[in-house]
Computed example of a mutant assay.
Amino acid sequence: MIFVVLGTHELPFTRLLDEIEQLVKEEEITEEVLVQSGHTKYESDRLKLVPFMSFEEMDQTFDEARIVIAHGGTGSIITGVKKGKPVIAVPRLAEHGEHNDDHQLEIVEQFDSAGHIIGTEGPSELKEALKQAETFEAVLFKSGKEKILRMLEDFIDKV
């Protein structure tokens, strides 16, 4: 199963779903596609769409997915990477009315350059990214949380 995660942002991301729908129609994708669609209104006979899921449902679906296709949100990307899934990330872009700015492009570029994900600049690169996902081995993600906390503690101690 391919799990598509659009997150909870209020602007639609139909460009990604249009491309996935086309790949299913062309039989480039032949397995079940489950979409957490959020606020993106979309109708499809080929994709299973669920607007929102509980934490437990999301967690289980990430576990069951063979591949994760995520918008460029850090939560969606990191969850897939931590679960050892090949993650393809497609950023929402301001020019298409999908977000307020292009910070997701920067997030995707950073995770891609670190070797954690297969990053794309847009849905048109999805077909090739799916081929890469078949053999992709991600660089293990290590959170910088502990380092940041130490830096904050050191700063507070000095003040």
Rank of each mutant, 00 (worst) to 15 (best):
V35A: 01
L130N: 02
H103E: 09
L34D: 02
G80S: 13
K48M: 10
V35F: 01
L23G: 08
D45G: 13
I118L: 11
L152Q: 06
H103R: 08
K82F: 02
F13N: 07
D112V: 01
F111K: 02
E125K: 12
K48F: 08
R92Y: 10
A94L: 05
E121Q: 15
H9V: 03
F52I: 00
K147Q: 14
G119Y: 15
K25W: 09
E21S: 12
I77H: 03
A138N: 05
V33G: 09
Y42F: 13
H39I: 00
D101G: 07
A89M: 00
D154V: 00
L152G: 13
D18M: 00
G38T: 01
P12T: 00
V87C: 14
L11V: 05
E125C: 11
T40N: 06
E95L: 13
A94I: 02
L126S: 11
V81F: 14
H39Y: 07
K145N: 13
L140C: 03
Q104V: 03
L47E: 07
L16D: 09
E134P: 11
P12N: 03
I69W: 04
F55N: 09
P12S: 01
A70G: 07
P51I: 02
Q60A: 15
D154E: 15
F62C: 04
T135L: 03
E146F: 11
E31C: 14
K147G: 12
E64C: 05
E56C: 10
L105Y: 11
I118T: 00
H99P: 09
T8A: 10
R46E: 09
H103Q: 06
L11H: 14
V90P: 08
Q60N: 15
E28G: 02
E106V: 03
P91D: 09
V35Q: 01
V33S: 12
N100S: 14
V81I: 11
D101T: 03
L11R: 15
K82Q: 10
H71L: 07
G73Y: 01
E128P: 06
L49T: 08
M151I: 00
E137C: 02
